[in-house]
Nucleic acid binder design. Sequence first.
DNA 1: CTAGTTAGAGAGTGGCGCTATCCATATTAG
DNA 2: CTAATATGGATAGCGCCACTCTCTAACTAG
Lengths: 227, 227
Amino acid sequence: MRISELSRRSGVPTATIKFYLREGLMPPGRATSATQAEYDESHLRRLRLVRALIGARGLSVSAAKEIVGSLSEVEGDTYELLGLVFGVWPGAGGGTDTGAGQGAKADGDADSSANAGQDAEVDALIAELGWDVTEFSPARKTVTRTLNTLRGLGIAYDWRALLPYARLAERTAALDLDQIEGPEDPLEKAERAVQLTFLLEPALLALRRLAQESEAAARYRGPSDRP
Amino acid sequence: MRISELSRRSGVPTATIKFYLREGLMPPGRATSATQAEYDESHLRRLRLVRALIGARGLSVSAAKEIVGSLSEVEGDTYELLGLVFGVWPGAGGGTDTGAGQGAKADGDADSSANAGQDAEVDALIAELGWDVTEFSPARKTVTRTLNTLRGLGIAYDWRALLPYARLAERTAALDLDQIEGPEDPLEKAERAVQLTFLLEPALLALRRLAQESEAAARYRGPSDRP
DNA sequence: CTAGTTAGAGAGTGGCGCTATCCATATTAG
DNA sequence: CTAATATGGATAGCGCCACTCTCTAACTAG
């Protein structure tokens, strides 16, 4: 199909598709001449995925590029492939503030790009859980940052408070992995993993919110509020 | 204290503090004259909270405003207060795409601002769980939208697939509520609820990612990959 | 008195996600 | 075969957002 049909079938303007092609969010079509290219169903699927990541999940274009990029680097077996997918962190490299307050003692540490053992708390948490993760996972830094942020707000919070959450995350992850058991093809598995990992996130947070509301009703609702 | 000290103690430029004041993210200081105002510790705490919501959590200024606004509307008891906090949804009103594809049958429904019974799937889910939530919770629409997005990608997905996730969300929410048991004052409870609800979100997603990685290693790692 | 600070308001800035325009070539309707 | 339309590629522009700068008039510390 040509670009106009791709546009019609996806609901995305051609100008935007061209933009995504330029940005590398989609592979170029098969060129049939200097000013003509042919697209197929895989382009349509990719386009819909990109739109879902950017629109529904709210990722930035560059984050979406990283994610779909991991899908294109497929070479190894299922484990490597999933490692690639799960290792992508949307906003990696964007540490905003560490909670700078009154104690302005900036220690100039040896800022290596890989984790060199700072994140000590996360290391302890992971060790306690017995998890098997690489030291390069960007998600480590996210946990560290959250802990620092909470403490910057004056809350006494250490990794132990996250332990029960982590146990539930473990079971959530098991559910996720169950759902990619279906396809045999590693590539399909990876695509399914991307969809479930990223697109389910808003729903999981929404479910937490609804559950909080329900739990608050159970704990704090006075008799006068009952219907 | 005056604005410069507020700036020094928080690390936020005065221009930005003025901007937040203009946008209503912080209450104005107590004016001592036409060009002078006095701020106190509560302003500092609010400022740090706003920064954490915008910086660490990545919320927009208007979303942050809604959230801290819920803290200011405090009048009722703990239940009402928590209902206010848990009822806020960061990006409410921003439904991006519903997964428009080939089947372009736009039914012009009576778009009422409150939920008028569409979200049937979420209703079923909530009923099955026995949750006690109002029909106005914006989180409902988020779940509906996620379901639609996944189906728009060609995945067969209905509310039943979310059931086990919801059960885990229930337990996560119980952990959240446990942690706001501390303070007696409803206002402090509410502030703690905001902190835990919103600032923990990135960490919870990061823990899921780490757990996925670990679970994938357990399930798919071949013998050759072992250290 | 003077130098510095402050509240308040408006304009300006840089980044981002598109969107519009242009041009040389291709395709296609008649 | 010609003319209208579509395409790929490139560049420039637009609208929004989160600040950031500038300015004025009033205050305050020394």
